[in-house]
Write a protein that binds this DNA or RNA. Structure first.
Lengths: 231, 231
DNA sequence: TCAAAAGTGTTTTATATACACCCATGT
DNA sequence: ACATGGGTGTATATAAAACACTTTTGA
């Protein structure tokens, strides 16, 4: 149903910086290959247009579901990008979210989604469509910043994880090596990890004890103004 | 010039959480009294509609200029609020900015702006229009958070300021008292203050030495990943 | 028995905290 | 001379950093 406005309005999109961790070395980002101009064949962030009846977060969740099959991701608003010429066709304002996945899954190929969708290592990306390269640069900086002051790294880990895993993840996010004993000491004195009775499986060495993150305790602390802080 | 779209689009606004400090006790926020329904006579954040040819930041600067006479404020994007029913008339998405003033000026009454505009103490606000109360609550939390990791408190001070002034400001922002000697030690060991040859004037006690913030040095450090941090 | 990573403490150094008096100025 | 806030140092406690070997498991 076409609609008439007294003045022109920008289009509103969401984009998602979908980040996962390969469990070893690299942070990965999920990109979608465009099939139309502009930037035909270029890789771009996943996105969607915000309808009148849905919040941008809701739109982001729906887009993730429809375009990848992923549900129940951790979403956090990152920034709103609104340069007037960021899309050559018309003015498009984009509300951008972090979407963090606890594991790298391959996208669901059964979906009604003809475009290629692939995971790329965050530090060797192709040239992206629109201003998405700039957005990703900003997201990388913010991820490192926020990982120090919020427990978002846990969103990139499975429900149960080893201390070595989370240390490696922090090393990747922060881009520097951490001392094993000091890292563990700091993390354990936060008292936000729950020791489980599970162990790593399928290793060819001593299996590591698995922990999980105590979300309830963390939220209770946030309520009394006592936030998470490594650093 | 009316315009036709294939699908309806939300309206895009900016709002500004304009914050100043009275130099003694209170953080203040500048509010505008509405003269039309909805929320007629209620107080609201300063705002404007984002046109097709201007970024939201540019729109915010222009609105501040036109509605208050203030120029060259420090602006920083805070959050984008997009609940579908935040405006009862239609879907309005609001990109919200912090606007920090180095001193409380009275607004320019000569402007072509019939609405009342007043400074309110941040901790005793009237009920605000729309979701602006919620926005202000969020802004308060963010101000305290960001003041610890970014040198934004200096944006609330005049070019030259005394150590007592900045301490009092931090006390107001963080909502707790700080030890004078320890605060000075920490601030001075950051080596981001430049001692000027000026002194406080018009006091009936020993005049305090005035300092200014070394923006260049701070920016140089940010570039090498060495950010500001009190805490 | 070997390879591989898990797990674990202590010492040193740096940072944070607690705390009280004298000083310079204006009235 | 008095009132007012400006300015300053030290001792203690806490947190960060540096550092290496033993243990457990699978192959």
């Amino acid at each position: 149903m076409p609609v008439i406005y007294r003045y022109p309005r920008p289009a509103i999109n969401v984009n998602c910086v979908v980040i996962g961790w390969d469990g070893i070395q690299d942070l990965k980002i999920l990109l979608v290959q465009r099939r139309q101009s502009p930037f035909r064949n270029s890789w771009a962030l996943l996105g969607a247009s915000v309808s009148m009846t849905e919040t941008s977060e809701h739109t982001a969740r729906k887009a993730l579901h429809e375009q990848t099959g992923f549900d129940d991701l951790y979403l956090e608003q990152l920034f709103t990008f609104d340069e007037v010429d960021r899309d050559p066709r018309e003015r498009v304002i984009s509300i951008v979210y972090f979407a963090l996945l606890p594991e790298i899954h391959n996208v669901d190929q059964e979906l009604n989604e003809p475009r290629r969708r692939e995971w790329f290592a965050l530090d060797s990306l192709p040239r992206l469509a629109f201003d998405h390269g700039k957005i990703v640069e900003y997201a990388k900086i913010q991820l490192a910043q926020r990982a120090l002051h919020q427990p978002i790294a846990f969103e990139l880990l499975p429900y149960r994880f080893s201390l070595t895993q989370i240390q490696q993840l922090y090393e990747v996010i922060l881009g520097r090596n951490l001392d094993k004993r000091n890292f563990r000491k700091k993390l354990l004195t936060e008292e936000l990890l729950i020791e489980t009775s599970h162990f790593e499986e399928g290793t060819k060495h001593r299996p590591a004890k698995l922990y999980r993150f105590n979300r309830r305790k963390h939220l209770a602390r946030v309520r009394i103004g006592d936030g998470f802080d490594l650093s």
